[in-house]
């Protein structure tokens, strides 16, 4: 598989604190990669550097062979790297369908300036309908986003990232704040949508059941470094990962088989 995202010697410091230290990683296209680590381990910092929210102190990030280290969030989104947020970032006074229509409109207005715009099919309302259907949001279409329950807000947040035609989707704790019963339903919907659009996924997650079930590969972060990288069962059974991140009581075994490509 071809490498779609690559970081070399990526480093981010905040004064005396090193949030990311020499991160070297290559992500293959069409894979689902989980980022795990305790709070402050550098997962979200890595995500923020890839999406242009934070500028690295040193090192480089390449997307599809192009250096994107110096680009801002808007330019990176236009190239095809989109993200969702730990706390859903919605347009609260707009309806669910209008939230999605904003994204469809942005892609349509950008035209040839949008790297993945060619994958858009049909009218703007078709694109909105497809996304509402994929994420099971039809019952909420006319509701203001600010009035939605948390699980639905999470789904809409991810749908808003998907509606702008990403090639890589970065999810920041997609199941945080979602009930234990809802988390697999949410992830199943997201993964079905991701497969339908052939999107590479990186997601930060603290729930190891979700990580085991949905990823092809896991990157374990600790103190700004990647301490383990490999298949989920291998990484989650790694001695250092068990000691510093997940604890000794968790036993990783693949369930459900959703991660198979």
């Amino acid at each position: 598989m071809s490498v779609i995202l690559e970081s070399r010697q990526l480093r981010k410091t905040f004064g005396a604190v090193t949030a990311a230290a020499d991160i070297n990683v290559s992500i293959e296209a069409d894979t689902v990669v989980g980022l795990i680590g305790s709070n402050g381990a550098g997962k979200t910092t890595f995500l923020n550097m890839v999406t242009g929210y934070l500028k690295p102190s040193s090192g480089s990030i390449r997307f599809d062979g192009r250096d994107i280290t110096a680009l801002g969030p808007r330019q990176i989104t236009r190239l095809g790297i989109c993200r969702s947020f730990q706390i859903p970032q919605l347009f609260d006074t707009l309806s669910v369908s209008d939230n999605l229509l904003v994204g469809v409109g942005i892609v349509a207005s950008a035209g040839k300036n949008w790297a993945n715009a060619a994958s858009t099919q049909g009218t703007p309302s078709d694109a909105v309908e497809t996304m509402l259907e994929r994420f099971g949001l039809q019952p909420y279409r006319e509701m203001a986003a600010g009035t939605l329950p948390e699980g639905v807000r999470k789904l809409l947040d991810i749908a808003m990232a998907m509606v702008v035609r990403p090639r890589i989707l970065l999810l920041d704790e997609p199941t945080s704040g979602v009930s234990a019963e809802e988390k697999f339903t949410l992830m199943d919907l997201v993964m079905d949508a991701v497969r339908a659009q052939k999107v590479t996924v990186l997601f930060v997650e603290h729930d190891m059941e979700v990580v085991t079930r949905y990823t092809h590969r896991v990157l374990a972060f600790s103190e700004g470094r990647i301490i383990a990288d490999g298949e989920p069962t291998t990484v989650l059974n790694d001695a250092e990962v068990r000691k510093y991140i997940i604890g000794e009581t968790f036993h990783a075994k693949r369930r459900g088989g959703h991660a198979q490509a």
């Binding site: 989109c82 347009f91 904003v102 990232a161």
Partner: peptide, 13 residues
């Protein structure tokens, strides 16, 4: 008006 951050992350200025 609702969320500038999201607008930027959807690719608009």
């Amino acid at each position: 008006r609702d969320n500038e951050l999201r607008v930027e992350y959807m690719g608009a200025s």
